[in-house]
Design a protein around this nucleic acid. Structure first.
Lengths: 125, 125
DNA sequence: CTTATATTTGAATATATGTTCATATGTTTA
DNA sequence: TAAACATATGAACATATATTCAAATATAAG
């Protein structure tokens, strides 16, 4: 039983089936702006690759340089550098320079919080 | 200046350059098992797609059926169904049946916690 | 100022993945 | 039991992306 659609309706969902139009409308009202959603998704996606997640988790115990991270993660320094750039762009990691060496570390405590909760979720299943 | 490698060394990182071998070793000791890491990454990856994230965030306000989620997210019901399967497999969402309709909801509070922290991270930048 | 070290960058490639379309399954109603 | 509804599933396709390789910066040392 579909709820009838309003007369004046240029919204996208008017072309499709909806069982509970009220819930769809409420969800739309509570939804965050699309550009923010995309950035939020990107944040999770960065943690969603095993190599990047390994890098991030290694940094929980303190700062590390690129070649150490490469040795730890078992991939080339170039690959690590590419991934670190993405992590930097979304402010998941930061870095400081000491001579030729760049030391990377987690940008803030939110990152380790995300990992903590993610692990809790897994371990409770 | 590279730290010399130990004599007996069949570890993978012996083939590569390391500046701070002690940090690499410590990170390895503190690291979680690889299968767990992969599952953890998969959890984040699921939140890392805009459509899936939109679905999950819609469910924060309560359970919804497939066609409502499709209307909300602006994609086909088939696409939503595919994504819900992935979210189900990793226990991010659960569902109950009422007649022909399946009502999906968040599996536990960890999921909304992840979103809360992710948003905090973004909004503080 | 030439060499070595540490990291970055760009292009190329192989793989992963989200959506679509057609079809199948499960449930209710006539 | 036939038809309608809600959702699921499988194959195909187009796009995204992680890694590799080669080359380019940037800093330190001799």
């Amino acid at each position: 039983m579909s709820i009838p659609l309003p007369d004046h309706c240029d919204e996208p969902f008017c072309e499709v089936r909806t069982i509970h139009l009220d819930r769809v409308i409420r969800a739309r009202q509570e939804a965050i702006a699309d550009p923010l959603l995309v950035r939020l998704a990107l944040t999770y996606k960065l943690l969603g690759d095993p190599t990047r997640l390994k890098i991030v988790m290694a940094l929980k115990s303190g700062e590390m340089c690129v070649c150490d991270l490469a040795a730890f993660a078992g991939v080339s320094e170039s690959a690590v550098s590419h991934q670190l750039r993405h992590l930097r762009e979304q402010a998941l990691v930061k870095h400081r320079r000491d001579g030729q060496t760049l030391y990377y570390s987690l940008d803030d405590e939110h990152v380790s919080d995300l990992i903590k909760i993610g692990l809790e979720h897994l371990l409770e299943k």
